[in-house]
Nucleic acid binder design. Structure first.
Length: 926
RNA sequence: GGGCGCGUAGCUCAGCGGGAGAGCACUACGUUGACAUCGUAGGGGUCACUGGUUCAAUCCCAGUCGCGCCCACCA
């Protein structure tokens, strides 16, 4: 006997273990030999992270697709794994060291620090995997991968080295986005523009040799003026035409800086003259290149002023008191420096004006401090070249985005893609496989041994690997030519985390080896992700997949929404509005959470999640549980070889057809990634169709004495329940699996667990049965409606008199006599030629359903009710007549539409006549 | 500055050329032997606004207002 309520916590863990032990999640489980493959690679979560609502949505949708396709008999692989998440993980461990007052990363040294990170990965790496299991994710865990596994690391090396030798990876010195807090370069994508209130300072730079003449420049960043090497004006700006070619003297420093004509200077903006700091601004860098300006870097890696011992800074500058005073600013943080410089400019009367100014300041997305454009050597991927085939693949439909609108976003970015800076000055990650010789020669190879071979060939002498960078410094040019062995040193930087993520669809399948899995599952099928990583991840997988596998990584990219709180705000720790999916699983069960997310996953809109919604779907699970309990109590056992369409009972034929229709609806919705429609269809079917109508209609049969009908209804109930379990399984895997087990205890033995059972594919029609049940539902519904409106106490049993019934209606009444009496709470149903006096009259088809309510009936209320009905139908007729009276409509609208309107008018007219008759009779009573 | 999306019942949202829908919330009634995590019935909407296309517009187009988000080097 089933309990009264379903207890998710008591069931979920056990069921999950059973799935795993049975091997149901293994690649290809349950699929026939000739099955088509179906593969999804999981967006790998941060190995040290924990499950948030976005993960819950993302993985629920994937699991729905995976379970659906697995049940349909595809050879399914859901490839799981985790990402080492370079910066994020390194920051976590560094913070831990600090909190524990342990030696810092630098004090520990690279090797010891990495040991600590691996240790932390070992401790916390299982967390998110276990949380995915709590959610019910049916990944093939035996194939779990990690981006820093040996195999995946080998793939990274292979890709980097290959791209290098193809000229698609190169080292370059240019401005990068430098994070002064994390001391690393970051890519354009990791920079967030943050609107900030600041000032616009207008500085006056004296013109050389023209005492009292100045050129005014505006800046939001006074501290960078120390690195100015020019002032630019627009070539056609007449105000400054005579100054072009002359020099200004940089205040506080004394540097002679050119005044150049460059189109970058916008006459409309500020004073029309702009200071040029090639080493600290992306635009100025370009101006500097065009005019061959010197580059003066005045910041150190922490973005503090770098002045002492800075040859570039003092080059060509004559010593002066001003300069000496400025040199004292050495080592000051950039923000303090800004203040000091403004003060000094002010003191010298060189500030023209100061304006309030709101502008976007670039911040590092991890560190949340302003990033500096900073001149360094970094490794770049030639993304523009790799993007070309990736653009073409989406253009010609080899990969499609769902919803399609995201393709525009993809194209816009890919067509304007910049070189991808892939080196990071971190320790946690894939160390770049580049070895440097003392003369600057670079050897990019798959291993140290290969680098040594290459270097020996290059130098013609033996080579050794240095442990420390300063080993190189010992070398002089002369040594390289003569001494032996030559020392090599490996690049200290690691690769951007997304570099390894870009390879995920093939690296996880075994590449660069030609494994069976790679052959079987690449190209994968669908990538399920949120739009915020289209650039970070999707685009790069497209590029790498096409370059190395010569095929797209997936045919469909399904982009789902972001999960927000119930008011639409982004969930964040600082706002305190984070809903923890694990809490919801505790409170309502994983099935309820999954169903909620699926039901709300309409395409193209964010999900605003409220716990009340999850509670509602927990109730749905309870409803299903109790429907099964009802079936159990009534001996509804499954029958081997049951043929639903052999049923004789109209209601049974109807529910079989409805089951088939619903199955088709869900299938179509899932094939189109319309998760909310699929969820809605199964919800309505279970609750509104099966529980509210079918089981209610079955009750009188099951408690009646027609043994054949009873038997048939029992078998049908069990059959429908079985199909419900299957159709609902992708959404609510736990409760359905549990009910599958429990209902399997009697009747024919189950061949498999539900997870591997077949997906319903039914083909049944019976329009007559549908018409009849619709009529029945209408009769019962109308009677109930009147009872409630007339305030007839539920306990009161009414007699029902049907007037004017035709043959078919009489037959139906006879067939469903018990059902109507029970569901409408009627004592008796009698036929009559004419409607009785003193009765409420309801029009159903050609017949009049009369409820004699003498003494109960409020004539006024009934009159009002009928008037309302009449008004409604008259409105309807009026609307239709207006249409049918319009010759344009008759001429131009499609024939079916016109015909449908005519039919509607006929029905409405008949209904109107009946209502008028009823009103007439009521008048006589009164 | 460019691009995308959204304004439909109190709330959250479906629908997207021919009869305004769901869930939750609300109201009334109800201990009907599956389920009160329930049942039955009900109230509630000029589908943001203005024009246009069409026989027909919540749905298509244009504009206006309001609200999000993404991208971008303007000092």
């Amino acid at each position: 006997m089933l309990d009264k309520t379903y207890q998710p916590a008591a069931v979920e863990g056990r069921i999950y273990d059973e799935w795993q032990e049975s091997g149901a999640f293994a690649a290809g489980a349950g699929a026939p030999d000739n099955a088509d493959s179906y593969c999804i690679v999981i967006p790998p979560p941060n190995v040290t992270g924990s499950l948030h609502m976005g993960h819950a949505l993302n993985n629920t949708l994937q699991d729905i697709l995976i379970r659906f396709e697995r049940m349909r008999g595809r050879d399914v692989l859901w490839q799981p794994g985790t990402d080492h998440a370079g910066i994020a993980t390194q920051m976590v461990v560094e913070r831990q060291l600090m909190e524990n007052q342990e030696p810092s990363r630098r004090d520990l040294g690279r090797e010891a620090f990495l040991d600590r990170v691996w240790q932390w990965k070992g401790e916390s790496g299982g967390t998110i995997i276990n949380q995915l299991k709590r959610l019910g994710a049916s990944c093939d865990w035996s194939r779990e991968r990690f981006t820093m596994d040996d195999g995946l690391s080998r793939a990274v090396l292979e890709v980097f080295v290959t791209l290098y030798h193809e000229g698609l990876v190169y080292k370059d010195q240019r401005l990068v986005n430098w994070d002064p807090k994390l001391h690393t370069a970051i890519s354009d994508l990791e920079v967030m523009q943050v609107e900030t209130k600041g000032h616009l300072w207008h500085f006056k730079y004296p013109i050389e040799g023209e005492a009292g003449r100045f050129i005014t420049v505006a800046t939001t960043r006074p501290e960078t003026m120390l690195g100015d090497t020019a002032v630019a004006v627009h070539p056609e700006d007449e105000r400054y035409a005579d100054l072009v070619g002359k020099h200004a003297i940089l205040p506080l420093v004394g540097r002679r800086i050119q005044i150049v004509a460059d189109e970058w200077a916008d006459p409309e903006t500020g004073s029309g003259a702009v200071k040029i700091t090639p080493a600290h601004d992306f635009n100025d860098f370009e101006v500097g290149r065009r005019h061959d300006l010197p580059m003066v870097n005045v910041l150190d890696p922490e973005a503090a002023l770098l002045l002492a011992g800075n040859d570039d800074f003092i080059r060509g500058v004559s010593p002066s008191d001003d300069l000496n005073e400025t040199l004292e600013l050495h080592g000051l943080d950039r923000f303090t420096a800004r203040q000091k410089i403004v003060e000094r400019m002010e003191a010298r009367g060189l500030i023209d004006k100061i304006e309030e100014h709101v502008h976007k300041v670039p911040h590092g997305d991890r560190s949340n401090v302003p990033v500096e454009p900073y001149l360094t050597d970094q490794w770049y991927v030639d993304a523009a070249t790799l993007a070309k085939p990736a653009i073409a693949a989406v253009r010609d439909g080899r990969t499609a985005f769902v919803p399609k609108t995201w393709e525009k976003t993809y194209f816009d970015w890919m067509e304007n893609i910049q070189p991808w800076c892939v080196s990071r000055q971190l320790w946690w990650g894939h160390r770049i496989p580049a070895w440097y010789g003392p003369d600057g020669a670079v050897f990019v190879e798959r291993s140290e041994a290969e680098a040594v071979v290459a270097a020996e060939k290059h130098y013609g002498r033996s080579v050794e690997i240095a442990e420390r960078l300063d080993a190189l410094a010992r070398w002089q040019k002369a040594d390289v030519a003569e001494a032996s062995p030559v020392t090599l040193y490996r690049d200290e930087d690691v690769l951007d985390t997304w570099f390894s993520s870009a390879l995920w669809p093939f690296s996880t399948l075994g590449w660069p080896d030609e494994t069976p899995a790679l052959g079987r599952y690449y190209r994968t099928d669908v990538l399920v992700t949120a739009f915020d990583i289209i650039f970070f991840w999707v685009a790069r997988m497209m590029m790498m997949g096409l370059h190395f596998m010569k095929d797209v990584p997936f045919h469909t990219v399904y982009i789902h929404a972001l999960v927000r709180d119930e008011h639409g705000a982004k969930m964040s720790k600082s706002k305190g509005n984070v809903i923890d999916p694990l809490d919801l699983i505790e409170d309502y069960g994983a099935d309820a959470l999954r169903f909620t997310l699926a039901a709300m996953a309409a395409q193209g809109r964010d999900i605003k999640l409220a716990a009340s919604r999850v509670a509602g779907y927990r109730n749905f699970a309870t409803k299903l549980w109790n429907a099964a309990r009802f079936c159990e109590m009534n001996g509804c056992r499954r029958v081997a070889g049951y043929d639903p369409m052999a049923s004789r009972q109209t209601v049974n034929r109807w529910i079989a057809v409805e089951t088939a229709r619903t199955a088709a609806e869900i299938t179509a919705a899932l094939e189109a990634y319309r998760f909310n429609e699929a969820a809605g269809a199964v919800y309505r079917f279970v609750w509104n169709t099966f529980c509210d109508w079918y089981l209610e209609l079955a009750k009188p049969v099951l408690s009646g004495d027609d043994e054949a009908a009873k038997e048939e209804t029992r078998a049908m109930s069990a059959w429908v329940l079985d199909h419900i379990l299957a159709l609902l399984h992708p959404f609510m895997p736990f409760i359905t699996e549990e009910l599958w087990r429990l209902t399997g205890e009697e009747g024919p033995a189950r061949e498999t667990m539900l997870v591997l059972a077949g997906w319903p594919d039914l083909d049944m029609f019976d329009e007559a049965a549908a018409d009849e049940v619709n009529w029945l539902v209408d009769v019962i519904g109308q009677i109930r409606s009147v009872r409630a409106e007339m305030n007839v106490p539920p306990a009161a049993q009414l007699s029902v008199i049907i007037a004017g019934a035709g043959t078919e209606t009489r037959r139906r009444l006879a067939t469903h006599d018990t059902a109507i009496r029970r569901l409408a709470r009627a004592q008796s149903i009698e036929l009559a030629d004419n409607a009785p006096e003193n009765a409420v009259q309801i029009v159903v088809g050609e017949a009049l359903v009369c409820l004699p309510l003498a003494g109960v009936i409020d004539v006024g209320a009934e009159r009002a009710r009928l008037d309302k009905e009449l008004q409604k139908v008259e409105g309807e007729i009026g609307r239709i007549d207006k249409k049918l009276g319009n010759t344009q409509f008759l001429e131009k609208a499609p024939e079916e539409v016109v015909e449908a309107e005519r039919e509607k008018r006929e029905d409405a007219t008949a209904l109107k006549a009946k209502i008028e008759q009823a009103i007439g009779r009521l008048a006589r009573v009164a």
